[in-house]
Design a protein around this nucleic acid. Sequence first.
DNA 1: TGAAAAATCACAGAAAACTGTGATTTCGTG
DNA 2: CACGAAATCACAGTTTTCTGTGATTTTTCA
Lengths: 208, 208
Amino acid sequence: MKIIIYEDDYKLRQSLSLLIDGTKGYSVIGDFPNCENIEKEVKTLQPDVILMDIDMPVVNGIEGVEKVKAHFPDIKILMHTVFDDNDKLFACLKAGADGYLLKKTPPVKLLEALQDIYTGGAPMSPGIARRVLSTFHQLNSAKNKYGLTKREKEILLLLTEGYTYKAISAECHISMDTVSTHLRNIYNKLHVNCGTEAVAKAIRERLV
Amino acid sequence: MKIIIYEDDYKLRQSLSLLIDGTKGYSVIGDFPNCENIEKEVKTLQPDVILMDIDMPVVNGIEGVEKVKAHFPDIKILMHTVFDDNDKLFACLKAGADGYLLKKTPPVKLLEALQDIYTGGAPMSPGIARRVLSTFHQLNSAKNKYGLTKREKEILLLLTEGYTYKAISAECHISMDTVSTHLRNIYNKLHVNCGTEAVAKAIRERLV
DNA sequence: TGAAAAATCACAGAAAACTGTGATTTCGTG
DNA sequence: CACGAAATCACAGTTTTCTGTGATTTTTCA
């Protein structure tokens, strides 16, 4: 397994390099203090895995991830950082990071994580994984917090699909005035003033 | 750590129970073939962790998760299943599962996962974790596949927030006709016919 | 610096959406 | 069965949105 390390702290970079390169099966083929020339470095060295800090001068880790993933989506990137706030975390995940470890992770776990990511896993520190999963949780909950009726949901759904009042009336076999009434009630229940706002709210809060 | 097992296969249930209960620090306080009376069982036994199969007769694991999490959100639930398709996976996560292991997981890893979930982690089989992370990936990509200009994105954003043409014209210090023109171009680029449809597409595809 | 892209404005008619007010019918449940 | 919630319809007036057509100015970039 060929590894590159990006880490601005010189001593830490050396320690990591020693630890990893000194373990059988792992080979550190490069280490750098920031992502300024990451494209060239990756292209030249062709690593399997990149161990990536976030907070680095000049070009930070998140930009680094974007650059690498744009050209080499198969190279795995393991974030290694002190940040455990949601903003940084999800920015990394969106950029395409394949794993996310906090720096307090013990060396043994770090080596395991490298192995894991190399073989198709997605290692995360415990709290991080929990945070990621919890983004899925509420998706279902509070499903009907606005008290929409069955018919109202049906009509709101059609509205989100671009149906006009007339088209809805045809689809539901009711008069346009009835559609109008339903939508009026929907707008009141959602506390919005027009169709576009209702659609936005419906999709954002997954009401449909 | 007090554990309940839900698993319809009698022999597997016995094996799991023996394995886990026979390990120091783990205590299996109940095992059942389905989730029919899960609320009562959980209330009576007060487990720390539930090991949950999905495909069970009468009341399946996903419904089980929903029932437990509705009343006891702090009890951790580790899914243990042969299914590795996205539908089942995300259904479980939305229901509130805290971890997801495939049945091919070796016993040692299963015990580790129980420990992990108990201490606030979210253990997942390698491929599963990868699948979960990849849902975040594309969120950024194809950002501008419709070729919207800066101004167009700005106006589309306002539209999704419920601004009328008039309000947009005020906000952007341009005439209503210009707003009209911009939106006309936006609708063309997005291949939609009206504002609501554009808003729906913009939010669904995260253009704004 | 010259062509293309982006942003701006104008006018006008047609279509659609929104609001107010009021009423009837259907349906499920205590 | 009675009651309330849900669903239905009607009418009318106002506002907003959409479409067609055409044009000018500003910016960007090869």
